[in-house]
Design a protein around this nucleic acid. Structure first.
Length: 256
DNA sequence: ATGGTAGTCTAACTA
């Protein structure tokens, strides 16, 4: 079972990219972020023709998440329980007995801003949610655009991306480690320990060509699935296409 | 520190 996460930065613009990538990569489940589409505009018919059912939670202009799967998507939930959030950033469903939580974590802009405080509160609410989901569904995958680079291997320059920088700050990384401590494992790091395996590159300054990126798109597997993760990676191919998203898909494969 | 690019929607916000 191939499970992937891709921030498409506007599904309206990137639908052809998604269709191409689905046919080439053939994932079983995909979590999308930044669809930027209201639900009535979601291209579920076009995706059905590509062989994927979809559930989605969107809004105009910003944010928006979706889950696509070849098999049925059951027990769908949108938004974080008991957390009043005007921004569409979370969706969950069960596919083939595996619970999937898809997150578009708040960017946070800069330390000391209201958006940064919102990011930390949002992550705290997600922590409580995952805690509950793990009790109900031991076979859990949490994936998405985390807007946190877990450690120094995941940045091009640790002196720049330091404890006081957005996406790598002490509080953000601590919040991420608290999620892992619930019983989750970074799928890519179960199998690969090398540095500079990035999933996002700024559109500016030829960052992709120079591999000046960050690894902020993650696929996490629960304790119960840890030994089932037999492959993981980042598919940089679509980042090299014309008019690409600034993110590449991160993925893992479960044995069954 | 700023600005560089992209998407949404034509002003300014978000990333």
């Amino acid at each position: 079972m191939k499970i992937a996460s891709w921030n498409v930065n506007s599904l309206n613009v990137r639908l052809p990219h998604l269709q191409q990538w689905l046919s080439e990569f053939a994932p079983d489940v995909v979590g999308l972020q930044e669809t930027k589409l209201e639900d009535h505009r979601f291209p579920d018919d076009a995706l059905l023709e590509a062989g994927y059912r979809s559930v989605f939670h969107g809004q105009k202009t910003y944010n928006g998440v979706a889950l696509l799967a070849r098999q049925a998507l059951e027990n769908v939930r949108t938004g974080i329980p008991n957390f009043d959030d005007p921004q569409a950033r979370a969706i969950a469903a069960t596919v083939n007995g595996v619970r999937i939580i898809n997150l578009y974590v708040v960017n946070g802009q800069d330390l000391g801003t209201d958006k940064y405080d919102y990011k930390l509160r949002w992550l705290e609410a997600v922590h409580g949610w995952i805690d509950e989901e793990l009790k109900a569904h031991p076979k859990l995958v949490v994936l998405g655009d985390f807007n946190i680079a877990p450690d120094d291997r995941d940045v091009p320059d640790a002196a720049v991306w330091n404890d006081d920088h957005i996406l790598t700050s002490t509080a953000e990384r601590a919040a991420y480690r608290r999620l892992l401590a619930l019983g989750l494992h970074d799928g890519l790091r179960l199998l690969h320990d090398e540095a500079a395996l990035f999933s996002w590159w700024d559109y500016r300054q030829a960052a992709f060509r120079r591999n000046l990126g960050l690894r902020i798109d993650l696929t996490l597997a629960s304790d119960a699935l840890k030994s089932e993760v037999i492959e993981a990676g980042i598919d940089t191919t679509p980042r090299g296409w014309e008019r690409p998203s600034d993110h590449a898909p991160a993925w893992l494969r479960l044995r069954s």
